[in-house]
Design a protein around this nucleic acid. Sequence first.
DNA 1: ACCTTCTTGACAACACCATTGTCAGGGTTC
DNA 2: GAACCCTGACAATGGTGTTGTCAAGAAGGT
Lengths: 125, 125
Amino acid sequence: MSEAHLKKDTRPVYVISVAATLVAAHPRTLRIYEDEGLICPARTPTNIRLYSDEDIRRITWIRHLTRERGVNLAGIRLLFELEERLGARILEALYAEGTRDRAAKQAAAAAVPTTEGAGADPDDR
Amino acid sequence: MSEAHLKKDTRPVYVISVAATLVAAHPRTLRIYEDEGLICPARTPTNIRLYSDEDIRRITWIRHLTRERGVNLAGIRLLFELEERLGARILEALYAEGTRDRAAKQAAAAAVPTTEGAGADPDDR
DNA sequence: ACCTTCTTGACAACACCATTGTCAGGGTTC
DNA sequence: GAACCCTGACAATGGTGTTGTCAAGAAGGT
């Protein structure tokens, strides 16, 4: 195993237009998430945003919670705060938990975020 | 010690107008919380809502999260869901947690719900 | 009996939020 | 030089939270 393997998910690679396409959102929306403190993408030395796979996963969670569950950004901020305080991925307890046979049905029916991209308008120009 | 001591907090005692006064909300609001599945007050044999002290505490949390933190009802539903799944009072981790000296300052400055009543319009007629 | 408070259901107003979209002026990358 | 990024602002649209009211009926206390 190579030593660059463990940090692969946190390596900043996507510019905002690519990231927006990956999560099926408007670039404007991603900037708003950042203004709200929900994400913190890396920057190039010349101030260009670069999103990592972990950023994408986080955004996918935000999208899922807002669109599928109707949670607003304040609620998501609190969720993330709780995850930090507790040092656990409490959100994953909602799906794929160990509640016997109900777990599989739950996870399948609830459209768990899987970082899949869709076709949308690419940019804000 | 009497045997009715342990369940005192869950004993239904307040009708909706009293409960609304206790949490400084409109009776209408409490019915909405119930429609949304956030609370489930007991009923008399003749269908009158009766709120326990634990119900009041729960509502006080809802009020705090919506007004002070801007969380919407969908977010609160998810929070309560998580508490059930994890079997822990994760919300209390936000305040009065054991993070050394910061705990006291946090708890004091954040207006922790304490079930205190204020003067408000009593009824919806 | 009377009057108050409770019930459900509906409708509405008001303010706020999430998301997308656009425009401007300027920097970066290829 | 064209296409993309930056910040900041403004706006439209649709949705939500809360309070408030109206109606018709049941329950409770004095």
